[in-house]
């Protein structure tokens, strides 16, 4: 790790000011991606702005027809939240499947979606539930937020403060884990909220999380696993690595989508 300045602001305004002052600064939330990268000397920010003291970014609450989760809520907070379990059990389950206990007690939802790792779980939930990402500057619909592998709509100095998830009628996540890292090799989040049917896929696409339109159309006719029988997205556009080739990943997306729908419909 190279030397860096360390800041621990006590409110979002201070944090934003620090980011503005240090062009090369990085936000550290749970630090579970950034710190290992720094230890390996693959990242060397001049300063870290630690959001750990910002209690305003914690907390999970139900607000009208949405669950609003503070950006600094840990995966464990989400996995064990009564509010989430009651309103969107599929989201609590997703959080429970992230990493291992140590990761879940440090890693945060804001950090995960800001990083937009193509194999991370939360991007699928955001896109699959039609979430709104709230920053210190604006509100960004999930569709516009994730702009490609490790890339988001966040501007310089913009800080995610909350994520608002509309409460669906039905929702679930099915994940096929990478045997080594246990990130998603193919993760599919499905939801139904009135006529809004969503199928969001993480881990598989070569450009990060995406919505699988064909499956959404099929489920619009009938929200049941059978509607997806024999379906999988085209292998073109899927990732290939030592763990899974594009053909297998595409197939897994179909399987995970069916399993997610089955879980969402209690089948």
């Amino acid at each position: 790790m190279h030397a860096f300045e360390y800041h621990r602001p006590s409110n979002v305004r201070q944090a934003a000011a620090l980011l503005q002052k240090n062009e090369d600064a990085k936000i550290v939330a749970g630090g579970h991606t950034l710190l290992p990268t720094m230890k390996q000397r693959l990242a060397a920010p001049s300063a870290l702005v630690d959001l750990g003291a910002l209690s305003e970014l914690r907390g999970i609450e139900k607000k009208g027809r949405a669950v609003v989760i503070g950006a600094m809520a840990t995966h464990s907070d989400v996995a064990t939240s009564d509010v989430v379990a009651e309103a969107i059990p599929g989201l609590a389950k997703l959080a429970e499947l992230i990493g291992d206990p140590a990761v879940r007690h440090r890693g945060t939802i804001g950090g995960s979606i800001a990083n937009n790792d193509p194999a991370a779980d939360y991007p699928a939930a955001c896109l699959g539930l039609g979430a709104t990402i709230i920053t210190n500057k604006r509100k960004i619909p999930a569709e516009e937020f994730f702009t490609g592998m490790f890339d988001t709509a966040l501007e310089e100095g913009e800080i995610i403060t909350k994520v608002s998830f509309p409460i669906p009628a039905k929702a679930a996540y099915a994940k096929f884990r990478n045997p080594a890292s246990r990130y998603a090799l193919a993760g599919v989040f499905v939801s139904k909220r009135g006529s809004d049917i969503r199928v969001a896929v993480t881990g598989a696409g070569s450009d990060g999380v995406f919505r699988w339109g064909e499956a959404e159309e099929a489920l619009a006719k009938r929200f049941a696993p059978k509607s997806l029988d024999g379906m999988s997205p085209p292998a073109k556009g899927m990732n290939t690595d030592i763990h899974a080739d594009a053909e297998y990943r595409a197939h897994l997306v179909g399987v995970m989508a069916r399993r997610a729908v089955a879980a969402a419909t209690g089948r």
Binding site: P179, A180, S181, Y183, I242, H243
Partner: peptide, 19 residues
């Protein structure tokens, strides 16, 4: 599985890829 690519780089040089 320890995997080297054709150029001789060890692809599985961490627990992210070595299961």
């Amino acid at each position: 599985n320890a995997v080297y690519d054709e150029s001789g780089q060890l692809v599985t040089a961490s627990y992210m890829d070595y299961a």
